[in-house]
């Protein structure tokens, strides 16, 4: 450790250590920055947007997730099992009478459910975080005739889990006759967007 050559070697090694530590740090920082900038931009493959609407998506056949089965009691007290809808296109709408956007899309859903009645399309509401009395009063006001599951604890959303990224109410999921997710609208639906999805899925 004392000879002149050893000292020189020490300096070289020291310089190399500094360089490697610096490089590792820079790489870590760059990596962290990259993760920061790109997180959340992940996109499922093959997804198309409906009429250029970023919150309405269609999943092509082969990229459709299977909806797990769930059951519950409707607002009117009837037992209901989702498996019973197999063979039909199902419009699954998550809503609450307390939720402004849900109230505004209510009449649209009522109109579309009437239009598609008898075309192999069933509408099913999932009323979340609500009081059945308030919910029934709203359904009557909005003219909604199709059934809704009483789901105060968001159990259906939990069961669906990763099949559809439900981040809030309202969310509308269109399920194909084989029980797979064919499309979804995140936020309130408009007549044209949901109509366009249903036209494509029933075609």
């Amino acid at each position: 450790m004392v000879g002149d050559g050893t000292v020189r070697l020490g300096i070289v090694r020291k310089r190399r250590t500094i360089a490697s530590v610096a490089v590792v740090t820079v790489v870590l920082l760059a990596g962290g920055l990259a993760v920061t900038l790109t997180s959340g931009s992940g996109q499922a493959t093959g997804v198309t947007h409906v009429d250029g609407n970023p919150s309405a998506v269609l999943y092509p056949a082969g990229h459709r997730a299977q909806v797990p089965d769930f059951s519950g009691t409707t607002l009117t007290g009837t037992k209901l099992n989702f498996a019973g809808y197999r063979g039909k296109v199902v419009v699954l709408n998550f809503w609450g009478s307390w939720c402004g956007p849900c109230r505004s899309e209510g009449p649209t859903l009522a109109a579309l459910s009437a239009k598609y009645q008898g075309s192999g399309v069933s509408f099913l509401g999932v009323d979340v975080h609500d009081s059945p009395v308030n919910a029934a009063a709203f359904e009557q006001d909005a003219g909604i005739k199709y059934p809704s599951l009483n789901d105060p604890g968001y159990a259906v959303a939990l069961t669906l889990g990763n099949t559809v990224p439900i981040s809030g109410t309202p969310t509308t999921v269109v399920v194909d006759p084989t029980g797979h997710v064919a499309g979804a609208v995140f936020g309130p639906v408009t007549y044209s967007v949901l109509n366009s999805i249903l036209t494509k899925v029933t075609a």
Binding site: H129, P152, G153, Y154, A155, A157, P165
Partner: peptide, 10 residues
């Protein structure tokens, strides 16, 4: 008396 699920929407 209320229930909640640990899911984004809830």
């Amino acid at each position: 008396g209320q229930t909640f699920s640990d899911t984004l929407t809830a």
